[in-house]
Nucleic acid binder design. Structure first.
Lengths: 201, 201
DNA sequence: GTCGAACTTGACGCGTGTGTCACTTTCAGT
DNA sequence: ACTGAAAGTGACACACGCGTCAAGTTCGAC
């Protein structure tokens, strides 16, 4: 009957369901009113649970944000990383990385909206610049590309930031346009940054 | 004695001083804890004023944010606009616009921090994408440049967003590095986007 | 069917924020 | 000086969020 791994007792089932319900409610609340203005009560109210129950699952609203973040950050990082590491040409490096990024965001627009709305808070709270989910890794990959001669020498720290910042804004616009045109966005940023990389030679 | 225009009665003097004190306190508070988490009391506490006095100047905290925003948005827009409109080559168009932007941010790092911290809130609150203070104007300028043949045809909406997003992130890094190197940042983004623009032809 | 541990519930005590308002202080005009 | 309007003050009434906890409910083991 149940599709996934363990059938599990009813106890564990509701436990997982409650946790999921809280995370789901929090996703909406944080995206709608922003993390700072949101209260634990706002989250609970979007749920069938009682106020006290919340604290069986998370100690405070910050933990919920953290959980939500881990969800998205690890996923997007892994996808982008593996896409980039499979690339051998600069074209593929840029295009595949962005494609993985844009594709995932198209899949989870709600999480993206949450990140967009609370980007400043995230930066301040966890020093991880989770917004781009891996500026450091991009920087590292760029340095490796420079070292191996694939790409001309340049300020990789600036470049990583610029790529993430531009990609983020382009993603916003991409998701605003109907229908969502991932390939168009990929083509745009790829041309932009390939041109930029060459020019730095 | 007093440098500026009207010596003004003591009445008007303190009135202006109080308003300025509130705005200054709010600048700090919004930048430190984020707009959503901040309270009117937090602002007042950073001031010599009583709680009630606040409401003689602003109806609520949102109005303070609005006032703060107008301060920075109109200033940066005017500077960038005039810098760009004086340019005749694509090089100057890109470089001068960014230079005006970076230079102003270097002047007012506190307002920049406020914008950075609350970018998501600003977008949600006022539809104006005040963060880049003029994406629309940049888009318009780009379209004009395309129409006049200065620059090859491309998706100017994407380009405007990408430029603003990249500039914002580069500015963050620029202000983190010591000493603040405006010309280095200008040179970086100029090469990046000139290469990108050419490549789109 | 019984029992106990795990979980849920919602009301409670406490702290804090909101916007207001009667009262006081301050300044400008005479 | 004197006076009245303008502005400042802080306590107040109300509302809400927080985290807890005693009481109730539910599931699973035997």
């Amino acid at each position: 009957m149940s599709g996934t791994a363990a059938p599990a007792g009813k106890r564990e089932q509701t436990k997982a369901a409650n946790r999921a319900a809280i995370l789901d409610a929090a996703r909406h609340v944080f995206a709608d009113m922003g993390f700072g203005a949101a209260s634990v009560r706002d989250i609970v109210r979007r749920t069938d649970l009682a106020a006290g129950t919340f604290y069986n699952y998370f100690p405070d609203k910050e933990s919920v944000l953290r959980a939500l973040l881990d969800e998205v950050a690890t996923e997007v990082r892994a996808r982008v990383q593996s896409a980039r590491h499979a690339a051998v040409t600069p074209e593929a490096f840029v295009a595949d990385g962005f494609r993985a990024y844009f594709t995932y965001l198209g899949t989870e627009p709600e999480l993206f909206e949450l990140m967009r709305r609370n980007a400043g808070t995230l930066r301040a709270m966890f020093d991880e610049p989770a917004i781009g989910a891996g500026v450091d890794e991009l920087d590292a990959d760029l340095r490796a590309a420079v070292a191996s001669g694939l790409v001309p020498e340049h300020d990789t720290a600036y470049m990583a930031r610029a790529m993430v910042g531009a990609a983020f804004e382009v993603a916003v616009l991409m998701l605003d346009r109907e229908p969502t045109d991932v390939e168009g966005a990929v083509a745009f940023v790829t041309r932009l940054f390939l041109g930029g990389l060459e020019r730095h030679g």
